[in-house]
């Protein structure tokens, strides 16, 4: 019955087919204890299906997965006992009261009545649910319900927490709030956290490791910084007073990957900010002082674009207002 030491999650060729659809197509994944990992990808990429297999909700078509030391098919109860799961929906029944749901959730994990009650009170306090915990769940706002979901997932202080699209449908303030809670949880308890998201900024700011999933496969797996450096790099944008100067500057910097566009010179490079002073110096001594300079650091979307030729862009100019993800062919 002892869990194997070592990795928190380990999958080999994890696969899920729904009839003809290869939702997850052979994923090899290793997550160490204490990691905070984001699965990033467009809708339908296989993120949620992967999570549902890891949380024992659906059996894999092929391949194996070990979670918290136990096989997700043969040792479901042991896996369930050790993980917390916050799904896309609301975990609390709408006709129930939040506090009751928290206590019965604790009971479901084998906690005694009194410890469950105490733990529920503790979570209600720390998630700021004091005023609404004894109201019917149906009367709670979206943000309050989401915090209640988080509390439900944490009732048994799991060593591993899965969150499926945790901030979808939340306004920016609630999103920031939620992210803060997740990060605090990790800092205080060292909980291993695996979340799926299609919010680029969320993956970027929270996770120290991003696993990019597309068409049921892992196409990249690294820290946001390294993913960007490796797959995209920085762009230095130099502005000049005339097109002639731009062309001359491009000739001066012939050793570099530079492209003039009108009065603008785009230089693709690694470690952009560190290169700017030297670059400006070189141009000045060639009699071509730049009028403006801008360093554009890549986003994870640029990484996705480079990897797949498609953009993982959130609809509209203001991503916060339109949470729906949109796949744009370019």
């Amino acid at each position: 019955m002892k869990p194997s030491v070592g990795h928190m999650i380990e999958t080999r060729g994890l696969t899920k087919h729904f009839k003809d659809v290869r939702a997850v197509d052979g994923i090899d994944l290793t997550v160490a204890r204490g990691e905070l990992v984001a699965l990033l990808g467009p809708n339908g990429a296989g993120k949620s299906t992967t999570l549902r297999m890891l949380t024992t909700l659906i059996p894999p078509t092929a391949g194996t997965a070990t979670v918290a030391g136990f096989d997700v098919v043969r040792r479901q109860r042991e896996v369930r006992q050790r993980i917390g799961y916050i799904g896309q929906g609301n975990g609390a029944g709408h006709s129930q009261r939040g506090r009751d749901e928290l206590i019965s959730q604790g009971r479901a994990y084998g906690m005694g009545v009194r410890p469950a009650r105490a733990r529920a009170a503790e979570l209600i306090e720390s998630l700021g649910l004091g005023e609404v915990a004894d109201r019917k769940v149906a009367t709670l706002s979206g943000g309050q319900r989401r915090r209640l979901d988080i509390a439900m997932g944490l009732i048994h202080a799991p060593e591993l927490l899965f969150l499926d699209e945790p901030s979808t449908g939340l306004d920016p303030q609630n999103r920031a709030n939620l992210q803060e809670h997740i990060l605090r949880l990790r800092a205080e308890h060292g909980t291993t956290i695996v979340l799926t998201t299609h919010y680029l900024d969320e993956a970027d700011s929270m996770a120290e490791r991003v696993i990019v999933v597309d068409h049921g496969r892992v196409i990249a797996d690294d820290s946001p910084a390294r993913l960007k450096a490796e797959h995209v790099g920085d762009t230095i944008l130099l502005g000049f007073d005339s097109e002639q100067e731009t062309t001359a500057a491009a000739a001066t910097l012939s050793g570099r990957d530079s492209h003039p566009y009108g009065k603008e010179l785009r230089i693709r490079t690694q470690g952009g900010p560190r290169q700017v002073p030297g670059l400006l110096e070189d141009l000045r001594s060639a009699g071509l002082p730049a009028a403006s300079v801008e360093v554009i650091r890549p986003t994870l979307d640029d990484v996705f674009l480079t990897l797949t030729g498609r953009s993982l862009r959130e609809g509209g100019a203001n991503a916060d207002r339109q949470p729906a993800v949109e796949l744009v062919e370019v």
Partner: peptide, 18 residues
């Protein structure tokens, strides 16, 4: 049916409840 829609049934399936 309603709890399947809202997600609370799924939440219970992830618990170790028999």
């Amino acid at each position: 049916l309603f709890e399947i829609q809202t997600g609370s049934h799924e939440r219970m399936l992830v618990t170790p409840l028999r």
